[in-house]
Design a protein around this nucleic acid. Structure first.
Lengths: 227, 227
DNA sequence: GTCTATAGTCGGATAGAC
DNA sequence: GTCTATCCGACTATAGAC
């Protein structure tokens, strides 16, 4: 689709701003639940309490709304994770950081990541869209992946690389990093959670996951050091 | 939708059997790529090299074809994982099984699980549909979850429970089990793999994942025993 | 900015010939 | 069993009044 149709009233006066936001919030919810093709503009409009053409007016098209929803998710990641990423990067540059310090930073990163993907403001909706965007065929996900790479995977690789005495770009570093992050990621899967009897995730459960992942990660790097 | 419209020519004479299979294989591929609503019956028919009404003829409806595709995936899981599950269960019932033996069984299970989800016959298509089915709103996924629970998660919980001295149904057992399985699961995510430069997964890469997960798992249970 | 009405397209399903 | 032709509903998007 034409790349130059975005920003249709991206932030106009005042009157429409509330409407715009309501449509956007609804869209994150609905696209997350029904997937792009499964969510009709009628459903979107109805649930947002607006009329049909409002979508065209504010976002140009259904696809424009979808892209705006993804961008909102990216802003959420950025807001939540980039301070952590920046802190990790800064501390990692210091010279007086011992192995225990690096491990602490990894725990910090994992804790924040767990809290972000498992909890969050709109618990289910946002993360579902995040996961769903994985293979949408519209390439609306590339910036999302880039943001995840920059704010989560990148810093994690740097830490893991340091712990095992390899470069962050090293393939082995990447493998171990993904495996460790995967311990958190599974819990995004609704099917997986059902086996625990968890229909929803609250603060207690986020902390339970954090504790387990901490223990596992500590055990892994107690056994595996610089070769 | 009416539950009694399935099995429309489930296995008729001979002539149509080849056609039926071709449609089914195509459906797994196409539903996996474009999602249920994104895949049109026209696209399905064209790629399978059949005419439009063939879908109605063999599967009753688009939804019938979808359910048949999911059932095929379930048969694949069953075929691949249930022998492993049976072996694990049998060995676990024996009395002369020491801690090392239990850990070996867990490694066996994880190796097979990794090989199943990462490799397989039709590499990408099948597992994408498997992941996609997660929240389809049609409840076609329940038997799939049940199959995964029986053939993968269940045996894994039994092993992990034994290793940490807790019941398989224990919540803590479940948490650790999912975290460990998650180490394998991440690699299903295309976005995650891209960070490794892996556009596709072959035998070497499956073995690399298996090796890493083995090391991590061994380290975890070296540090964490019966409390 | 907000809305009603409607245009134009495409999808799932069916009828009925062969 | 296989196919062409077609129906009909649902969808995205737009025109234009207020």
């Amino acid at each position: 689709m034409d790349p130059e149709i975005m920003r249709y009233r991206s932030s106009s006066c005042q009157r429409g701003e509330g409407t715009r936001r309501r449509i956007l919030e609804t869209a994150i919810e609905v696209f997350g639940t029904y997937e792009y093709d499964g969510a009709s503009t009628r459903m979107l409009a109805e649930r947002a309490g607006v009329n049909l053409p409002a979508i065209q007016y504010y976002f140009g098209s259904k696809e424009g709304l979808y892209r705006a929803a993804i961008e909102q998710i990216i802003r959420d990641i950025e807001e939540r994770m980039s301070p952590v990423a920046a802190h990790v990067t800064a501390r990692l540059a210091e010279t007086d950081l011992d192995r225990g310090g690096v491990l602490d930073l990894l725990h910090l990163l994992l804790d924040n990541f767990a809290e972000f993907v498992l909890s969050g403001d709109q618990p289910e909706a946002r993360k579902r869209l995040l996961v769903r965007a994985e293979a949408d065929g519209m390439n609306a996900l590339e910036p999302l992946q880039a943001s995840m790479a920059e704010n989560v995977v990148g810093p994690a690789r740097a830490l893991v690389g340091r712990l095992i005495g390899r470069a962050p770009e090293d393939q082995c570093t990447g493998l171990r990093t993904l495996a460790i992050l995967g311990q958190v990621g599974v819990f995004c899967n609704r099917g997986a959670r059902q086996g625990l009897g968890w229909t929803e995730i609250g603060g207690d459960r986020v902390r339970a996951v954090q504790a387990i992942v901490r223990e596992h990660t500590a055990a892994i790097f107690a056994a595996i050091g610089p070769s």
